[in-house]
């Protein structure tokens, strides 16, 4: 009973927390864009426009729900749901902190510590694209279908380097469990560097980052919804909260991706050179690890915003060239070097 209750609390907590992060991100995105572009940004609703996401939500919820007459209705409705579901679900295996110790009982800050965390992530990561393709197909609109097709082309180009980068991580840490990887990143190696993935897998980190930006469908990889070319791509025909789910799902997605980057490459909840568990009590340590983890995540979230407002968009064939001709060979090379180093140092 106690176990189930704790699991339930964790699920609800992290769900609400990710939701909150995504809501705040919509605000950060707009204010961040405004900051980068020399303009004030939304500043009417609440202090610093902080209530803007709420206002947007109310607007989307109260708008008329329109389904185009010639759309495939069931698929049309399924699209946004399929898109936002994987983004939330991926969080189930992400360790968002170390642990609490209450009455000698350990409570891990992770919904489920499965030993095939990697496969789970890769499987769910490819699910989201179904939402896009279905949305594009069911809309019965040429721009939408183009968006959906672009998304497919993009998926096959970035999924492979993304998997290759993950594989190299698995080689380094010898495990598929995200928590074990996080635990392995404490302390230092070679005497000076923190024992973080980014120092052990610099090339892998770059590959993973690029693939993550493609996965998130954001500039420079926002071709499925390239506004100036295909109106809004796959969600051209969507309105009200269905559109909201697509837009919101994107933010949930980047929260998840930032968490993955932090877990794999930036030491999860570990601070460099400082062992927090040595001087903090069991409960305050749990809280501190959670805070450290999300501070790192916040940095990557900001990076997503920063990149979006800095670079132009790729063309669809250029993304495929980048994926197949540059990232995949680099990914294979990375695995080869990693395996070689492990073999030689073992």
């Amino acid at each position: 009973m106690g176990e189930i209750l704790i699991a339930l609390i964790k699920v609800v907590f992290i769900w609400v927390w990710v939701l909150l992060c995504a809501v705040v991100m919509t605000w950060v995105e707009r204010r961040g864009a405004a900051m980068i572009q020399d303009r004030p940004g939304p500043n009417r609703a609440g202090p610093f426009g902080l209530l803007q996401p709420l206002a947007d939500g109310i607007k989307l919820f109260t708008k008329e729900d329109i389904v185009p007459a010639k759309a495939k209705k069931i698929l049309f409705m399924l699209g946004p749901l399929l898109f936002s579901f994987p983004a939330f679900s991926t969080f189930a295996v992400v360790p968002f902190g170390d642990k609490f110790v209450i009455d000698g009982k350990e409570i891990l800050l992770q919904v489920s510590n499965v030993n095939i965390g990697f496969l789970y992530i890769v499987a769910l990561g490819s699910m989201a694209v179904y939402g896009i393709i279905l949305g594009g197909w069911a809309s019965n609109n040429k721009y939408s279908i183009l968006g959906g097709l672009r998304s497919t082309a993009q998926l096959v180009s970035y999924e492979v380097p993304w998997g290759l980068a993950l594989l190299a991580i698995a080689l380094v840490y010898g495990t598929f469990s995200l928590r074990d990887i996080a635990l392995a990143q404490s302390g230092t190696f070679l005497g000076v560097l923190p024992n973080w993935g980014v120092f052990k897998q610099p090339l892998g980190f770059i590959l993973f980052m690029v693939a993550a930006y493609a996965e998130a469908n954001r500039v420079p990889f926002d071709l499925p919804e390239a506004e100036s070319e295909i109106v809004s791509g796959y969600h051209t025909e969507y309105g009200s909260m269905r559109l909201g789910l697509y837009l919101f799902g994107e933010y949930v997605n980047i929260v998840t991706l930032s968490s993955l980057i932090t877990t794999f490459y930036f030491g999860a909840w570990h601070l460099p050179y400082i062992d927090m568990s040595a001087f903090l009590g069991p409960i305050s340590y749990g809280i501190a690890s959670f805070i450290v983890f999300f501070l790192k995540v916040a940095f990557f979230l900001w990076l997503f915003v920063w990149v979006r407002w800095t670079v132009p968009r790729f063309r669809y064939d250029q993304v495929m060239t980048l994926g197949w001709r540059e990232l995949i060979p680099l990914g294979l090379f990375n695995i080869f070097v990693t395996a070689l180093v492990i073999q030689l140092t073992a």
Partner: peptide
């Protein structure tokens, strides 16, 4: 031209 190629920010610098 920037906006149409996905680079939104220069537009604002210029439009100011």
């Amino acid at each position: 031209l920037g906006v149409d190629l996905g680079a939104f920010t220069p537009f604002f610098y210029l439009i100011i």
